[in-house]
Write a protein that binds this DNA or RNA. Sequence first.
DNA 1: CGCATACTTGACGTCATTCAAACCGTGTGG
DNA 2: CCACACGGTTTGAATGACGTCAAGTATGCG
Lengths: 229, 229
Amino acid sequence: MNLACATCPVKDSAACAVLTPEERDALATAGRTRTLKRGEMLFAAGDDEAACATLVSGALKVSAYDQDGNEQILSLVHPSGFIGELFTPFAHHDVVALTESRLCTFARVDIERAIDDYPALARALLRRSQEDLLATRNLLELTAHASAEARLAALLHDFAAAASDSSCHLASSFELPLTRGEIANMLGLTIETVSRKLGELEEMGAIARKGKRGIDVLDPALLQDLSGR
Amino acid sequence: MNLACATCPVKDSAACAVLTPEERDALATAGRTRTLKRGEMLFAAGDDEAACATLVSGALKVSAYDQDGNEQILSLVHPSGFIGELFTPFAHHDVVALTESRLCTFARVDIERAIDDYPALARALLRRSQEDLLATRNLLELTAHASAEARLAALLHDFAAAASDSSCHLASSFELPLTRGEIANMLGLTIETVSRKLGELEEMGAIARKGKRGIDVLDPALLQDLSGR
DNA sequence: CGCATACTTGACGTCATTCAAACCGTGTGG
DNA sequence: CCACACGGTTTGAATGACGTCAAGTATGCG
């Protein structure tokens, strides 16, 4: 299926937003849309023909596996995010859908040509790459030194911020995009510790749990404080 | 002082290597060299006029501080590395010299203009940024799940690989670029744990310590094995 | 209804941290 | 030349946070 940029929900925020409509349509002829169900893989570590993609809707996780097969989530991708390693011979990480997701995929050669043809695109991807770097470093900061409580508080804070439409305050309520297991291995903890600490955060009045995935933020300041930032 | 690209030791490996000699010289008129002693800061978190730089010789660390002032090293920069956030209004992290270092600095506006003028430069910086991202994710993988022993083994392995001239095997001997304290906070450990685990790695015959900073790699395979990768 | 999957809760063990003291190489002043 | 202080490091013992193992409780789906 060809792309329909005109109705694309992320046409103003994705990397391709920097192109003129004509350039964008030219690039679009090289791309294909794809939808993934929860748990489906976009590409795997070691793939040598890994494509690149812009996420249109849904959410992805990027994860690595150690030699015993334990997963480590390295990054989450949200709509308008760009995914794909451009200059490495093969992919280093698995990319898997967390929820039903729509993507706009490109063969790597097409993206590379587009980078050469449209300097603004290279600049946009550079910007995105630096944002990814910053996000990864934030996660690193978190997992390296902070206590389990602080890690969890920070993650909830981030999710609440991402779920909010305003950039200056948190959403008062949101759905966790991850299972306990995924939260645990993103933060370098175990499922049990995540469950316990969520209970403690609830006890101390920072949050309330609504079902398995729902979170109400009762005390944003406390959450921020516990997160150590 | 103006730049002398012709004698620059990283002229073939730094980002500017993708420019033609003419373009490079044009860019060079905007740059300045700078030398930093160990411990000197290139720029600090919060600086709004942070420049960008290519590291010519020496080594830098990029670090963040939590609300109690504890340092967390996020990344090391080696010669030919590029440092600087291009699209953020202010710097997020401190950048400090680990050893006497020579840099080639540019005002941000000059780099931004160069990116627009020379598409190849944008591409080169994108590539570098993605490499940084990969390195940071490797560190994240390490600190999130691995035991103290595995983290240290992996770090030593990386240093040994970086110190080797060949890309396929490790240096048999190298000097640690970091103090115990710096190693500790890079890996999310304490000084004492680093010291103990170094002792254990020596006992089990993986390495030998030569003075405070020197390391002999006695059993590269064991080191790799302990690192969990 | 029955089974599977995700989550919660408890008891116990382990590994890294903490606190404390000693050690070592180096530079300084008597 | 020696005494001494100082930063970086090593080592030891005790504490505590998180992991492990195991059982038990929802929730959803065929």
